[in-house]
Design a protein around this nucleic acid. Structure first.
Lengths: 97, 97
DNA sequence: TCCATATATCGGGAAAATCCGATTTATACT
DNA sequence: AGTATAAATCGGATTTTCCCGATATATGGA
């Protein structure tokens, strides 16, 4: 759990949006045809107006920071919030800051 | 209270250090001759190894984000943590994130 | 094997962040 | 007025971030 890396990951509106959208997949990704238990399909995030490669980079940043988990299912990769890391980060920040 | 601006301000090790040092001025700034009730004199932060202009810019960033307050006393400017904003930010982040 | 789809990576351009030394501004003291 | 100290701002070099289109890689199905 690298606090600095997480702070950098959060210090970007697009990535913060992604994390927030993942709190309510049903609401924010109504076009997804896969069940939401698997998570949200990477391509769904292109709805923010950014290109596929940019979205992929943002998801990579969030994943490297430990804020999301990913799981390949066939040709798709599904993302979920990593609530454990998020909670641990908030706890540490509350203590440190 | 601009959450994004605060996150950007926190996403830098030097600025995070400054905020942390301000929690225990007596311990981290033993060379200060002014009473700590006024806060910590700007020049004290040059102990992090950065130049005067760079330290000034970091303090400006923290101040613009509302994370510290400043008060001019004579030719010096003293800085303190802004606990209200810090607490409000933590609360909002815990709710939003 | 060949093609379609999904994602990652590459290469590069634009913008923002970081840092410094030099200068300017503000205050204090003589 | 003249000097000294503290802090902000300027100008510029370097690094990092952000974004894109193009290409590479991975998987699935015909």
């Amino acid at each position: 759990m690298d606090k600095d890396e997480i702070l950098k990951a959060l210090a970007n509106p697009a990535r913060m949006d992604i994390l927030n959208w993942l709190k309510n997949p049903e609401e924010h990704f109504p076009t997804q045809e896969h069940p939401f238990e698997m998570g949200v399909c990477a391509s769904q995030f292109e709805r923010c107006g950014l290109s596929q490669s940019t979205v992929s980079a943002h998801l990579g940043t969030l994943h490297r920071a430990g804020l999301v988990t990913s799981k390949r299912v066939g040709q798709w990769i599904f993302y979920k919030r990593n609530e454990e890391t998020i909670a641990a980060f908030l706890q540490q920040l509350t203590q440190d800051l």
